[in-house]
Simulated scan of single mutants.
Amino acid sequence: MDFPAIVTAIFGAFVVFGGVMGYVKAKSKASLIAGGITGGLLLLSAFLMARGITAGAILGIVVSLLLIGQFGPSLAKKFKVMPNLLVVILGLITLGTLVFSFFR
């Protein structure tokens, strides 16, 4: 498996875990659903990239941008390490890795 797929899979697993933790700690069904969907899409993206399908990288870029767009403004308003800062940092790392590999 290549590096971009591994980075995307790690980010996807973190997002799924974050959604579950949001549900456990705050009983937030929205966190569970959103984390499950976006994390699942990132894991699907990693799977597709591992199979050599270019659509996987595009899907990973789109989902990473959506997560950065969701958590970035929250981070700017109120600095919270979990989940805002961690999602933004991992999203930027994933996005950079995917864009670099996509145009390579």
Score class of each variant (00 low, 15 high):
residue 2 D to M: 15
residue 2 D to Q: 12
residue 5 A to I: 07
residue 6 I to K: 09
residue 7 V to Y: 01
residue 7 V to T: 11
residue 8 T to V: 14
residue 9 A to F: 10
residue 10 I to W: 02
residue 10 I to M: 09
residue 12 G to W: 03
residue 17 F to W: 06
residue 17 F to A: 14
residue 20 V to R: 01
residue 20 V to N: 00
residue 21 M to Y: 15
residue 23 Y to P: 04
residue 23 Y to C: 15
residue 23 Y to L: 14
residue 23 Y to H: 03
residue 23 Y to F: 14
residue 24 V to C: 04
residue 25 K to N: 06
residue 26 A to P: 06
residue 28 S to D: 13
residue 29 K to Y: 12
residue 31 S to V: 03
residue 31 S to D: 11
residue 31 S to P: 03
residue 32 L to Y: 07
residue 32 L to D: 05
residue 33 I to S: 05
residue 35 G to M: 02
residue 35 G to P: 00
residue 35 G to S: 05
residue 37 I to P: 01
residue 38 T to I: 00
residue 39 G to N: 01
residue 40 G to V: 00
residue 41 L to G: 05
residue 41 L to N: 01
residue 42 L to D: 08
residue 43 L to A: 07
residue 43 L to I: 09
residue 45 S to G: 13
residue 46 A to Y: 04
residue 49 M to Q: 12
residue 51 R to W: 04
residue 51 R to G: 10
residue 52 G to I: 00
residue 53 I to S: 07
residue 53 I to M: 10
residue 54 T to W: 14
residue 54 T to Q: 14
residue 55 A to W: 08
residue 55 A to M: 11
residue 55 A to R: 02
residue 56 G to H: 12
residue 58 I to H: 02
residue 58 I to Y: 11
residue 59 L to I: 15
residue 60 G to D: 12
residue 60 G to F: 00
residue 60 G to Q: 04
residue 62 V to E: 14
residue 64 S to G: 15
residue 67 L to K: 03
residue 67 L to T: 00
residue 68 I to F: 07
residue 68 I to H: 08
residue 68 I to D: 15
residue 70 Q to K: 15
residue 70 Q to R: 10
residue 70 Q to Y: 07
residue 70 Q to A: 10
residue 72 G to F: 11
residue 73 P to D: 00
residue 74 S to L: 09
residue 74 S to A: 08
residue 75 L to P: 11
residue 75 L to T: 01
residue 76 A to Y: 09
residue 76 A to W: 15
residue 76 A to L: 15
residue 78 K to S: 10
residue 78 K to Y: 00
residue 78 K to N: 04
residue 80 K to G: 13
residue 82 M to G: 02
residue 83 P to N: 13
residue 83 P to A: 13
residue 85 L to Q: 04
residue 86 L to I: 09
residue 86 L to Q: 10
residue 87 V to Q: 13
residue 87 V to D: 09
residue 87 V to E: 13
residue 90 L to I: 11
residue 90 L to N: 11
residue 93 I to K: 05
residue 94 T to Y: 07
residue 97 T to G: 09
residue 98 L to E: 12
residue 98 L to S: 02
residue 99 V to S: 03
residue 100 F to T: 06
residue 101 S to P: 02
residue 101 S to N: 08
residue 101 S to E: 05
residue 104 R to C: 01
